[in-house]
Write a protein that binds this DNA or RNA. Structure first.
Length: 356
DNA sequence: AAATCGGGGAG
DNA sequence: CTCCCAGATTT
């Protein structure tokens, strides 16, 4: 991630041409007005925010007005925006400002971060836009622009990656026009370097954007490693029970899942238990009891198991070698069994195998 | 259905 | 510190 030289000038030149400069909070750029806009914009898009912002400013034109308001009144103005904890934090911060800081926002990022609801990025946005302080933001927009420009190969949720991106953000923040630069980066991310369908051909950073060099800039930022959305499989297992109260177990092949363990005969969920059983074991089924469905989760997939207990007349176990064997319940439970099979059989055993 | 967003709060 | 959540929108 080698920084380039003329990053900020290109971004600013683009901003002068194409940036948004007539948003309500861009007029009378006081720290208070910018602060409120940034809190609203944390959670909601510009077009939605505008009417809320205007009504809010009409009712609470100053930090003193906000601090004096009842919480209910503040929340009423927030109604429809959601994330009400942020409105409560903002209200609390207004009271702190008036009571302890002479109604003036601190001039440093660290100072502003002391207020509830304001972190490093929001603090930098407020101070750079309203006071020209040279402090960089790293919100979702800027993360996306930087991750693409440098084809950052790791997930920004990792601390290491995030720190590196903060370094880049600070590095690129110019010493002049700090507020315009902050606004420009937000605009770039919001209007061109969008999550899907970025308009690279209009971008001032296009020529040396590393993400653009790959086939697909939208691969960046690298997405959060999925909670390995485990695939789901379903099977049915059969507890065949003979007139002696014995269970039929099947020896699994030595390789593969549950290799070499004694398990229960298995069939696909689509198959009919009765037909399959009568065909596979050349027997007469006299009763089928569905047992409760449950999920067994492996490291790499979920297995939904539908067990059934089936009472059969005796089965001739011929031609299958030692693959199938009848076991008394206590014998069966003494064998090496897969955990879900053990669970099924233990439950049946505790119920005295009552077939209800 | 899953990812996203910036800060708070829990462990 | 490092995770995980709030709470709604977007994809």
């Amino acid at each position: 991630m080698q920084p380039v030289d003329n990053f900020a000038p290109r971004v600013l030149a683009w901003f002068d041409e194409h940036g948004r400069k007539n948003l309500p909070w861009q007029e009378h750029r006081t720290p208070y007005r910018v602060w409120i806009s940034e809190i609203m914009l944390q959670q909601t898009q510009v077009t939605t925010v505008i009417p809320y912002y205007q009504k809010f400013m009409a009712s609470f034109p100053t930090v003193e007005a906000l601090a004096d308001a009842e919480q209910d009144e503040v929340l009423a103005h927030w109604s429809g925006l959601g994330y009400y904890a942020r409105a409560r934090n903002m209200h609390k911060a207004a009271k702190m400002l008036v009571d302890e800081l002479d109604s003036e926002l601190p001039h440093s990022v660290e100072g502003v971060c002391e207020l509830p609801g304001i972190g490093r990025s929001t603090a930098a946005a407020i101070l750079s836009i309203s006071r020209g302080v040279q402090a960089a933001i790293l919100d979702g927009n800027v993360k996306r622009v930087l991750a693409r420009f440098h084809a950052v190969p790791t997930w920004p949720g990792e601390k290491k990656t995030e720190n590196a991106m903060w370094d880049l953000a600070e590095h690129y923040m110019p010493s002049e026009r700090c507020g315009d630069y902050t606004q420009a980066m937000m605009d770039l991310g919001a209007t061109l370097c969008t999550r899907s369908k970025p308009q690279c051909l209009l971008c001032p950073l296009e020529e040396d954007c590393q993400g653009r060099l790959t086939q697909d800039p939208t691969q960046f930022p690298i997405r959060k490693p999925k909670k390995a959305a485990k695939p789901e499989k379903s099977i049915q297992l059969l507890v065949l029970t003979n007139p002696k109260g014995q269970w039929l177990l099947e020896k699994r092949p030595s390789v593969g899942i549950w290799g070499g363990l004694w398990s229960l005969p298995e069939l696909a969920v689509e198959e009919s238990v009765v037909l399959h059983t009568e065909q596979r074991f050349a027997t007469q089924v006299s009763a089928v009891t569905p047992l409760s469905l449950f999920r067994h989760t492996f490291s790499h997939y979920h297995l939904d198991i539908s067990p059934s207990q089936i009472v059969v007349s005796d089965i001739q176990l011929v031609g299958e070698g030692d693959k199938y064997q009848w076991f008394n319940p206590d014998e069966a439970l003494a064998q090496g069994l897969p955990a879900p099979v053990r669970r099924i059989l233990e439950q049946l055993n505790e119920l005295g195998m009552s077939v209800r």
